[in-house]
Design a binder for these strands. Sequence first.
DNA 1: ACCCATTGCTTGGCCAGCCAAGGTAATCTG
DNA 2: CAGATTACCTTGGCTGGCCAAGCAATGGGT
Lengths: 169, 169
Amino acid sequence: MSGTDPVCTETAPSAAHGGPVSVALARVARMHRIAAGRRLRELGLYPGQEMMMMRLWDCGPVRQSELIQSLGLDASTVTKMLQRMEHCGLVLRRPDPADRRAVLVEATDEGRSLRVGVEGVWSDLEQASLSGLGPDDRAELERLLGVVADNLREEAGEAGECPAPPRGC
Amino acid sequence: MSGTDPVCTETAPSAAHGGPVSVALARVARMHRIAAGRRLRELGLYPGQEMMMMRLWDCGPVRQSELIQSLGLDASTVTKMLQRMEHCGLVLRRPDPADRRAVLVEATDEGRSLRVGVEGVWSDLEQASLSGLGPDDRAELERLLGVVADNLREEAGEAGECPAPPRGC
DNA sequence: ACCCATTGCTTGGCCAGCCAAGGTAATCTG
DNA sequence: CAGATTACCTTGGCTGGCCAAGCAATGGGT
């Protein structure tokens, strides 16, 4: 703060003086991920898998390529994650008859059964994170995060929506 | 957005309706990390290592345990990261003569030489992320993130400061 | 009809990060 | 002073996540 102490009195590293918001964002993001991980563990999920399941709950049988697109993840990441989740019985994969390259992914009953739990985790996480913030503050935070997301979207890939719903999607 | 379409028209998964801010935060965090990773790669750093280096630049020779504390990471994570960074010549490790359990860590000259580059990366990232936001919006975002960090701090570990500067720290 | 670019997915390799378990050294306690 | 506890670090094992390289199927161009 003040005084002659040259360094290391602040929580933010001095080399990051050019990006205080980025520092705060990185810290919050890690904490948030940890907090989510703790809650998800009790459901038998690892962090990141909850987003996959949400996508599957919304979309029904989907092509893996669409999951990659909508989650904004690398193809290999999705492949491996789905392999593990299939092995755990959360997910079902089968070749797409219309395109023998593609793989259709679908939540199993066991996977669907997690929905309530995940929704609870997510709500609880929201409540824990935003404690002490009124509705207007929350809306403002959401708005500002949206702006940042738009700024980073072009250079850091996309986490968009389901592009072309062929049927139930 | 409107109409009878039941699902999967929104960018946010419907199962996450209970936590819109958490969804936004998770998305922004991943984009932000990717954007940071792209920039850091050109410096020869992996994401996460820049924070380590910042700490070392600020603190000089530090105990590994203090790094663990200030970065809020797991001890094993720090051990392995430092082993790799030492092998790359960014960092120097030696046993603490005052406590033979402890390890003192210090940036090498090569490690110190990255400081300018990392500062540039961080500033550039800040600028890219916050484009379109005025000073008041930025301050507001920082404030709100601070509140969230405080909320999550107790349950998700700490990323605090250098606790007891023995000398140069 | 054929060749080639594109798309979709997989594999291998690497790093960040977590937990659990273990080993050594310092410190607290009886 | 000896034994128990605590602090510090390391190792192994697992997942998320990335990139690069590779393979198979589709589709477009000539």
